[in-house]
């Protein structure tokens, strides 16, 4: 057994696996339990980490467990986070915090009442390119920020358990599930949002893909444009452009791949070039390391429930604007 905090993971899907890997490499935390409705998924993580397969209730009841990590579909966050808090566990919860502000409020209250920490998985704040840009903006490298453009996506609508991403009532679609990353980053960088206007494909013509464009006006004066795309266009990529009075930062993940591998097929026909990144540390590990360090009394950073709540507000405002065709004032 490793020294440090004992963690129980609920949800062994894509994000659960990324978090499990983080706990595996950390010195001051250990994944001791994993739970998933799909037994094989829990098994895969258990095999890699040595965690025991348990039910969520068993995890809540286990007094040796300090932290519960919730990697479930959005609409289940409230129930599991509240239960974990009531069991006296610190909680790490994947983004978006919840499907509604009411649910998010309940999560915040439950954690405050129980005196436990709540961290929300706004992992973009732990990506090195986004951190570097944040630091440079704060150091005045672009002057006063005027106009920001963000892009996220380029892959088809994700398919997961019960196809829940495709259910708008459960997932909120790409605006709530994916570009909330950019809303959160921009709010971190630029402060509060004053006004939101957005357009999206939802309810228009075609439901096999989703695409949205969001216009944000910040109290600081800055205007931002956020593009979210669950449309195939060369695979997942992100972009940001931060233009200010003294300069401009321009980032495109497609131009920042240190590796491109092309392997010819066995019959000698040309292969397809596959670009790839390479991390000093996986940003999901950085995120979890920061959260665990805070619990462990070390230096670290938590995107807490209040922050998760504020970013959720922007995403829900964008959804409201898409529905009504009107701007939403925050």
């Amino acid at each position: 057994m490793k020294p440090g905090l004992k963690v129980g993971l609920i949800g062994a899907g894509t994000m659960g696996s990324a978090h499990a890997e983080a706990y595996r490499v950390l010195d001051n935390a250990e994944l001791v339990a994993v739970s998933d409705l799909i037994y094989e998924r829990a098994q895969a993580i258990a095999a890699k980490t040595g965690a025991e397969i348990k039910t969520a209730d068993q995890i809540f009841a286990d007094s040796s467990i300090d932290v519960v990590d919730v990697c479930l579909p959005t609409y289940l966050h409230r129930d599991f986070v509240v239960a974990a808090a009531q069991a006296g566990k610190h909680v790490f919860c994947e983004k978006p915090m919840a499907r509604s502000l009411q649910e998010a409020e309940e999560m915040k209250t439950a954690c405050e009442k129980a005196g436990v920490k709540l961290g929300i998985g706004h992992v973009v704040r732990f990506f090195p390119e986004y951190i570097r840009a944040y630091d440079q903006v704060k150091n005045g490298k672009v002057g006063k920020v005027a106009m920001v453009r963000c892009t996220r996506g380029g892959f088809p609508l994700p398919t997961a358990w019960q196809d829940w991403y495709a259910n708008y009532a459960l997932s909120g679609g790409l605006v709530l599930d994916m570009i909330i990353h950019d809303f959160d980053y921009l709010r971190w960088l630029l402060g509060p949002v004053e006004r939101v206007f957005a357009k999206g494909t939802r309810g228009r013509d075609y439901n096999r893909l989703e695409y949205a464009l969001v216009s944000l006006k910040f109290r600081s004066g800055t205007i931002a444009h956020v593009e979210g795309s669950w449309v195939s266009s060369g695979g997942f990529h992100t972009r940001f452009e931060i233009a200010g009075s003294q300069g401009l930062i321009d980032y495109d993940s497609r131009k920042a791949n240190p590796i491109t591998l092309t392997v010819n097929k066995k019959d000698g026909t040309p292969g397809v070039p596959v670009p790839a990144s390479a991390w000093a540390e996986n940003p999901y590990t950085t995120e979890i390391r920061n959260f665990i360090n805070v619990l462990d009394g070390k230096d670290g950073k938590i995107v807490d429930g209040n922050e998760g709540y504020e970013s959720l507000k922007i995403a829900l405002a964008a959804l409201e604007s898409i529905e009504t065709g009107k701007p939403v004032n925050l």
């Binding site: 672009v142 005027a146 206007f197 957005a198 357009k199 464009l213 200010g244 300069g247």
Partner: peptide
């Protein structure tokens, strides 16, 4: 010097257009 248009077009299409004069002299 900065502008961002969000538009509803015919055929149920939507669009945005960034018109900003925001390329710095170093660009």
């Amino acid at each position: 010097d900065c502008g961002l248009l969000t538009m509803e077009l015919t055929n149920n299409v939507f669009a945005t257009l960034d018109t900003s004069w925001n390329r710095p002299s170093a660009y």
